[in-house]
């Protein structure tokens, strides 16, 4: 292609060699960048299999992967399993509530004509724009008055409130695109409205539910700010917050520290590697039109 349009064979050659050297340079930059992105994670995992002395003496060495004492100690001696379980409960319950409430509002707005629809959408749009982090003081007092402070519920309701608006928009956007023939056919057959929603429409709405779930699951699983403010009791702490107590307790035992970090990072990283396309799509959904 290039040769056919180039004015002379000489410049065509220099053109090709230039594009080859550019491709070569691009490849080097990409390999270097991927190395910088992955190597710290690799060192973290490697160090988790070493004793503190080995980490200090041979920081770059490949460890003996049968040495799992650090992991055994993290799981047996510390509260990490509790933190882990709390993170699963809090993330799971929040996502469930976000999907249930988000689907309810999204369905009503998308499938039923009403004068209040615009108002409802504007209401949730405002929720999408306002950062709840800055209202953490009133939220703290509200949760205390409701008796939810220092419990996993304080986190579940907060994360649901943050994630709900985007779920409403994702669900409403999708449900609006479904043809009304489906509904009408079921209605003629005498199906009730709840039945139409549950058995006809919702089975089709799994893809947007997956997007809404992933988009919210990663920030909820990783959040640190709200537990820091709301939770004091060790037994109610989630993984990121529990990790700070853990890191404070074992400051000098680097083998333990790296094992703790590896255990905390493992589930989301493995899930990401298995479902990278869905993760990337879900997490950039808000910024990619």
């Amino acid at each position: 292609m290039t040769i056919a349009f180039a004015p002379s064979a000489v410049s065509a050659q220099s053109d090709t060699s230039r594009s080859i050297s550019f491709a070569f340079l691009a490849q080097i930059i990409l390999i270097l960048n991927s190395f910088i992105m992955l190597y710290p994670v690799v060192v973290m995992v490697f160090s988790a299999f070493k004793s503190t002395g080995e980490i200090f003496e041979h920081p770059f060495a490949i460890p003996d992967f049968t040495q799992v004492q650090n992991f055994a100690r993290v799981l047996g001696e510390t509260s990490m399993p509790t933190y882990f379980l709390n993170s699963i409960v809090v993330t799971g319950a929040s996502i469930l509530l976000i999907l249930v409430l988000g689907t309810m509002a999204g369905y009503a707005v998308a499938r039923y004509e009403s004068r209040t629809n615009t108002f409802i959408l504007l209401f949730f749009l405002a929720g999408l724009m306002l950062p709840l982090k800055l209202a953490v003081i009133p939220l703290f007092i509200l949760l205390r008055d409701l008796g939810l402070l220092d419990s996993r519920w304080s986190l579940i309701v907060t994360y649901t409130a943050i994630g709900l608006p985007s779920a409403v928009f994702i669900m409403a956007g999708f449900l609006r695109s479904l043809p009304s023939e489906l509904e009408d056919a079921a209605r003629i057959d005498g199906a009730s409205e709840p039945r139409i929603m549950w058995s006809v429409m919702l089975p089709l709405a799994r893809p947007p539910m997956a997007i809404a779930a992933i988009q919210n699951a990663v920030p909820i699983w990783n959040d640190f700010f709200f537990p820091l403010v709301f939770i004091q009791t060790d037994s109610a702490k989630t993984l990121p917050q529990g990790l700070t107590s853990f890191m404070g307790e074992y400051t000098t035992d680097w083998g333990m520290l790296f094992a703790g970090l590896t255990i905390a990072a493992a589930p989301i990283t493995l899930l990401y590697i298995a479902l990278s396309r869905q993760f990337i799509q879900g997490m950039t959904a808000g910024a990619v039109k």
Binding site: S34, P40, V218, F224, F258, Y272, M283
Partner: peptide, 23 residues
């Protein structure tokens, strides 16, 4: 390369912070 560049994004900021503090 596309998958690799996004690996740190999915990690918790707390993990990233502690990891670099140790490094």
């Amino acid at each position: 390369h596309r998958v690799a560049v996004f690996v740190p994004v999915v990690l918790s900021t707390i993990i990233v912070g502690f990891l670099w503090k140790l490094f």
